[in-house]
Amino acid sequence: MLKIVTVCGLGVGSSLILKMTVDSVTKELGIKCNIEHWDMGTVKGRKADLIITTSEFEKSFEGQENVIFIDNIVDKKEIKTKLVQYFDK
């Protein structure tokens, strides 16, 4: 199954909020996936199909294609738009 991870610095706050938002958006879109929330250390050492994180981390993922960056992590619309764009590619 598709493995999505949401990522923030410590894996405690933002990534968990992002996980909840992504959870509800993927349900709406009918995307079957496992979603976990990780910290920056974990994401460097493990693999996921898709990484979703905040725009502040753009530099940390430079050159990686399977990453979506979000400005407002409680905004379902932004996440929905970006997920749809991602899967259309």
Binding site: L10, G13, I17, T54, E56, F57, N72, D75
Partner: peptide, 16 residues
């Protein structure tokens, strides 16, 4: 890690 704790316009969530 930078100001990623600003999670939405006008809103910050500090934590450790």
């Amino acid at each position: 890690y930078g100001p990623y704790i600003v999670i939405a316009p006008g809103i910050a969530l500090f934590h450790a």
